[in-house]
Design a binder for these strands. Structure first.
Length: 631
RNA sequence: GGCUCCGUAGCUCAGUUGGUUUAGAGCGCCGGCCUGUCACGUCGGAGGUCGCGGGUUCAAGUCCCGUCGGAGUCGCCA
């Protein structure tokens, strides 16, 4: 049964407006972000719950907040009142009169109260060392229920948070949890530092449209129908890419924007359909300028947010090296366990599968999992075999490293000398577990790269609190799309090729390196960018290779191409995934926790019920008729 | 689109190889008692379409199929 709203029984105290209260150190010790000033408090309260300390003893204060818990002793009633700055204990003594006492007894969790009282020091034995406010109480003289709460489906203070479906449906309760409040504050701080950094370096924050033109490349667009132009649609931006390049042509040589982006693709733990990018573009620069600018940002954030001094420049790896050593273009570099190649040994061994793989143009590569031999049963290794199967590997061979050699169902195919060579190649010691994949080069990379990431976590090979940043450079400009039998742009079609690779356009496009760069943070892509093409001839070559006819390119990107013909400076840029940065800095394992109102895996907002059907009248206005999907 | 896991009281969970009259516990909720608690204590009480639909069976929370919802992942994400 929902409880009845309770009328207030006390009028606001006169002392609220007294100068004495406003002078009482309000500007200090509000935890988390900025201090609250006298002006911010307004008239309903004199202090926040979390700020009260022994220094406030004997002051009359008024605080507002939510009932975190109530302990009713029949006589004395204790109420923990919570706001975003912390909790404070309110004490209601029966000597203050029945009216107040009865009201205090009727209060329930999550009711919103306004309480006036005197700050008193607790007796030594009653101090609660677990709370920053634990040395004092507020002895209430007036209590006002600003809003009764229904019985909540879950309590913000619960030890085990409920399932995410419920959390998202009642997001306003979930967001009351101290952890989520901390995350929102952290996100605010990080965002502010980013703005400060770029402002200090002369970047201009310029907004670009949300209602733009659909370009069929890349991710699926979210479309917005136009009422004024029946049958026509805007697209929400996948990123402000083209606009920011046009800003360079316009002369705004240092641009930044914290931009919301939209991509109608399937979600992941670190991917939402709408997300936030720190979007950056600079004119009259080369790759090095961007790298150093972002290096500086990373060092600044690490200093300000974690107090860590990061040596610069950040480590740099070529794409080829990353793939060879780690099997991934975004390797987690907090630990080693690098990939090794034993194709030479495999080619000469007695094991047909290995031998044939090498003979067929494949490679045999593997990783050495330290001290893992006893940790993985045969059954668990079978699970890993299924796992690498997701990455097209046809099998997963393994050796347990012993004092005398290798132990495995396939060990018999390898003589003592071969076994020692393998042990040497992997620098294994007894107790290690070697995993091997024999397949086409690409498959060995992706399967072992994924296996390395999984084992790194399972074997706890790194400190989860550590943050590691590295640049991956020299990506290929194009990748061959086997399904469609054509070349795709690896980054986007405006990415400049490395100039000495331009001759490969006619001979071997796969060899052309891009002037692009990714910043990898703890094994995930934290930022990605490139030097852009500003030479129409090079742009033409790229479109030609991508199989986009001139007139087609003109149709899709005319406004950019046109701009490039009117005095385009050399320019380059990058975009940082802000949500991911917050996630990585705070150690969250999913992106929803760092977004106030996130969507589910099916891109639904359980709080608002979006997406929803709309009134037929709205559809008529937009000249849209909905065809029911086939059952 | 594929694969995997999850769904039992408001919440978190238990519920054995399908079988004990009425599906349990803790928290929360409602009522009583309680003047120093802070995970308050204590006595009593209410609360369940076992996500939904179908099937197998003498018997289904338990097994099978489908479906809905949530999560993870592959594809996808210029």
């Amino acid at each position: 049964m929902p409880r009845e709203p309770h009328p207030s029984c006390q009028s606001p105290p006169d002392s609220l407006s007294s100068k004495r209260n406003f002078r009482s150190g309000i500007t200090t010790n509000c935890r988390k972000n900025g201090p609250i000033s006298r002006e911010d408090i307004h008239l309903l309260r004199t202090h926040t719950c979390g700020q009260l300390r022994p220094e406030h003893v004997n002051q009359t204060v008024t605080v507002c907040g939510w009932v975190d818990s109530r302990r009713d002793h029949g006589g004395l009633v204790f109420i923990d009142l919570r706001d975003r700055y912390g909790k404070v204990q309110i004490v209601i003594d029966p000597s203050q009169g029945d009216e107040l006492h009865d009201l205090a007894g009727s209060v329930r969790n999550e009711d919103v109260l306004r309480v006036t009282g005197t700050v008193v020091r607790r007796a030594e034995k009653d101090i609660n060392p677990k709370l920053p406010t634990g040395e004092i109480d507020v002895r209430s003289t007036h209590l006002e229920v600003l809003n009764k709460s229904r019985v909540v489906p879950f309590e913000p203070g619960t030890l085990t948070p409920p399932n995410e479906e419920l959390r998202l449906k009642y997001r306003f309760l979930d967001l009351r949890r101290p952890r989520l409040q901390e995350l929102m504050v952290f996100r605010h701080r990080l965002t502010k530092l980013v703005r400060d950094y770029f402002d200090r370096h002369g970047f201009l924050d310029i907004e670009t449209p949300m209602l733009g033109r659909s370009t069929p490349e890349g991710a699926r667009d979210y479309l917005v129908p136009s009422r004024v132009h029946p049958g026509c649609f805007y697209a929400l931006p996948q990123s402000p890419q083209i606009y920011k390049q046009i800003l360079m042509v316009a002369g705004f040589d240092r641009y930044m924007q914290i931009a919301r982006c939209f991509r109608d693709e399937d979600l992941r733990a670190d991917r939402q359909p709408e997300f936030t990018q720190v979007d950056i573009e600079m004119a009259f620069v080369e790759r090095e300028d961007i790298l150093q600018t972002v290096d500086g940002l990373v060092a600044f954030l690490m200093q300000e947010l974690r107090g860590e001094k990061l040596p610069l420049p950040l480590p740099r790896l070529s794409y080829a090296e990353a793939m060879e050593r780690f099997g991934s273009d975004k390797p987690d570099l907090r630990y080693g366990m690098e990939l090794k190649d034993i194709s030479d040994i495999a080619a000469a061994c007695g094991f047909g599968v290995f031998k044939n793989a090498v003979a067929g143009g494949g490679r045999v590569r593997g990783i050495n999992a330290p001290a893992a031999a006893a940790k993985y049963s045969r059954k668990q290794i079978d699970e890993l075999t299924v796992f690498v199967g997701d990455f097209k590997a046809k099998g997963l061979a393994f050796f347990r490293v012993t004092e005398t050699g290798l132990d495995s169902p396939i060990a018999k195919f390898f003589g003592p000398a071969e076994q020692q060579s393998i042990i040497q190649r992997f620098e294994s010691t007894p107790g290690d577990l070697i995993f091997l994949v024999a397949d086409q080069p690409k498959v060995t990379s992706s399967a072992l790269g994924a296996l390395r990431a999984r084992l790194g976590k399972e074997l706890a090979l790194f400190d989860p609190n550590q943050m590691h940043f590295a640049w991956i450079l020299d990506f290929p400009l194009f990748s061959w799309n086997e399904e469609e039998k054509r070349w795709d742009a690896e980054h986007h079609p405006f990415c400049n090729p490395v100039s000495e690779d331009v001759p490969y356009f006619d001979s071997d496009p796969g060899k052309i390196r891009a002037t692009s760069y990714d910043l990898v943070i703890n094994g995930s892509e934290g930022a990605s960018g490139s030097v852009r093409i500003h030479d129409p001839a090079v742009q033409q070559k790229v479109f030609d290779l991508l199989g986009i006819p001139a007139e087609e390119a003109e149709k899709r990107f005319s406004f950019l191409l046109e701009a490039l013909r009117y005095g385009a400076p050399p320019h380059a840029g990058i975009a940082l995934g802000l949500d991911r940065w917050v996630m990585l800095f705070t150690g969250c394992d999913n992106i929803r926790d760092v977004i106030a109102f996130p969507k589910t895996q099916k891109a639904a907002d359980l709080l608002s019920g979006a997406p929803s059907t709309v009134d037929p009248k709205q559809l008529r206005e937009l000249s849209i008729r909905v065809e029911e999907p086939k059952a």
